[in-house]
Structures are given as structure tokens and as C-alpha cells.
């Protein structure tokens, strides 16, 4: 496969999309995952993972109380230890936004809302943009939308592109994260194309998955997206953020992602402004690892709050 160009009618901009070498990509991701993190660096890595975390609850059974307690945990992940930083944001459904805004007021924790017919993205674009505008009006700082995989996979990239442009308009000042749902795209080449498409359309962040299907984020997929981000930055001078989400449950997985991002994009990306990890159960494991570092003995799930 040779280099192709995506040209988009609306902006007239043209972006080069290089093909992906699957074997090297997976080998590179696997070798980065074997990198050992020494004890001295572990605490810094764990703190960074917390600072970059989007603490997420996206269940049909979410209640205002559950969101409020999630926000408390986001502000002070470990009530017994002041050194543990707050997470970057809480990620919730639009219906819950005003509860989260209230609960996080005065803290550094941002409110991210999924919007636009999450998780399928298959309602009319008018309904989706109205949903986005509504979430922003309720006070969301960040909006997570999904790529229209249906249009993208059917070959109608132009439509997928224009929908993201329209969504970006609807966002106003709020940050836009575009979920590619990489598990549904089928190949690394498609992930690369979708990443380029989303970034060209104005995404502030590209995000791996909704967390609603079993095939979610993986190290090679995030590496593939990180390389796309690097390419895009070289071609346009625009730095786009990355969010890995779905299936990230252990502290070890989290620092593998930090290594991949740091090695591919540089330390500039190792901050909550440029990198996020979306997770619901990861935080407790990170807290357990921190307790292990502090006390020297292994801790257990009885010693952290349940969600």
C-alpha cells in the first residue's frame, strides 16, 4: 500500500496518510511494554497516571448520588493521603453533567460528558449536535463524541468528516474528544486514517474506545494513533491529544501507556492537557500500588473505597 491523501472539500486541506507496517508496530508496542520501571520512578508514574485520568461512569444505572461520590473520589482519590493528586476529569452522561459541575466546583477536576448518541453515534446529525450543545450549556468542559463508523466504514469519509466539523462547532469553547472505537475499525490502516480524519476535522483529542465493546484499547492501537498524532503535528504544527480508554484496569497497563506516549510523542504529551486515560476501575489499583510503595507490604481491595 502506498501513501494516500485525504482531501476534504469543506476546508480544502489535504493530509498525507502513510500506511501502517503491522508487524513492526506490534513488535514496537511489545518491546515498549517490557520496559521496566524502577522503584524510584514508580511513584512519579503512578501520580502522573492519576493526574491524566478521566474517572468514568457510563452506566444506565448512574444516579446523581453515584456521580457525586465519583466526583469526591476524583478530587481526593485517597482521603488518607494528601500527596495523591486529583484526577483530570470525570466522564459521565449529559443527564448527569449539572450534578458533576456542582460537585467539582472550586476544584481542578474538569467535567467531561459523552454526547452525540453515544456509544453508536447513529442518530441524525441535528440530534447529535443539539445533544452536544446541550451538554456544553449544562457546563461540560469537555465533550466525548463518537466517530460515525457506519459512514466511515462504508467509504463515506467525507460525511464522517463533516459531522465532526459540525460537532466541533456545536462544542464552542469546550474541548472535543473524538472516539474512533478502534475495535470496530478492523485494521491499523483504518485506525490511522480515522485518526487523521478526526484531527483534520478539528478534534482536540482522539480517543480509542467507548468501553462498550469488548475489543477496546490496546498498546499497538494506541501506538498507531500516537504515530498519527506525531505525523499530524509534523504536517500542520497542531498538537492533538490522545485518550486511551476501555479495558485499562491495572497500574502496570497504565504505565505501559505512559511509556508508549512518552517514547512516541515526547514528554510534552505526558500531561493531562495532552494525554488522558479513561477508566472506572483503574484508580483503585493505582491507589493500591501507591500504598504498597508507602508501606512495603501488599494491600488489598478492602483498603480502598468501592465505587
Amino acid at each position: 500500500m502506498s501513501t494516500s491523501n485525504i482531501t476534504f472539500r469543506k476546508t480544502g486541506s489535504s493530509i498525507k496518510v502513510t500506511p501502517v507496517d503491522e508487524v513492526s508496530l506490534e513488535a514496537r508496542a511489545a518491546s515498549l511494554a517490557t520496559r521496566s520501571i524502577k522503584t524510584d520512578s514508580k511513584r512519579a508514574a503512578l501520580h502522573l497516571a492519576i493526574r491524566c485520568m478521566d474517572l468514568t461512569t457510563l452506566e444506565g444505572a448512574d444516579t446523581p448520588e453515584k456521580v457525586a461520590s465519583l466526583c469526591q473520589k476524583a478530587k481526593r482519590p485517597d482521603p488518607s493521603n494528601h500527596d495523591v493528586p486529583s484526577v483530570a476529569a470525570v466522564c459521565i452522561y449529559p443527564e448527569m453533567v449539572h450534578h458533576a459541575v456542582e460537585a467539582t466546583e472550586g476544584s481542578s477536576v474538569k467535567v467531561a460528558s459523552v454526547a452525540g448518541a453515544f456509544p453508536s453515534g447513529l442518530s441524525t446529525i441535528e440530534a447529535r449536535t443539539a445533544d452536544i450543545a446541550d451538554a456544553v450549556k449544562r457546563g461540560a468542559d469537555e465533550i466525548d463524541i463518537v466517530l460515525n463508523r457506519s459512514a466511515f466504514l462504508a467509504g463515506d469519509e467525507q460525511r464522517a468528516f463533516e459531522e465532526i466539523v459540525a460537532s466541533k462547532d456545536a462544542c464552542g469553547k469546550a474541548h472535543l474528544k473524538v472516539i474512533l472505537e478502534v475495535g470496530e475499525l478492523g485494521s491499523y490502516d483504518k485506525i490511522r486514517q480515522a485518526s487523521m480524519l478526526a484531527m483534520t476535522a478539528g478534534a482536540d483529542f482522539i480517543k480509542t474506545s467507548t468501553g462498550k465493546i469488548s475489543q477496546a484499547s490496546s498498546l499497538p492501537r494506541v501506538l498507531c494513533m500516537a504515530e498519527a498524532v506525531r505525523d499530524f503535528a509534523q504536517q500542520t504544527d497542531i498538537s492533538v491529544g490522545i485518550k486511551a480508554a476501555g479495558g485499562i484496569r491495572t497500574a502496570k497497563q497504565a504505565w505501559h501507556y505512559l511509556v508508549v506516549i512518552g517514547e512516541t510523542l515526547g514528554t510534552e504529551w505526558l500531561s493531562p492537557e495532552m494525554f488522558r486515560i479513561g477508566a472506572s476501575s483503574l484508580l483503585n489499583d493505582v491507589l493500591l500500588q501507591l500504598k504498597r510503595l508507602d508501606s512495603g507490604s501488599y494491600s488489598g481491595p478492602d483498603y480502598v473505597t468501592v465505587d
Partner: peptide, 9 residues
Amino acid sequence: PWMVGHLDV
């Protein structure tokens, strides 16, 4: 020592 110190045992 690890068995004795492990909080989840």
C-alpha cells in the same frame, strides 16, 4: 514475611 504482611490475607 510477605504472607504475614499482606493486608488481603
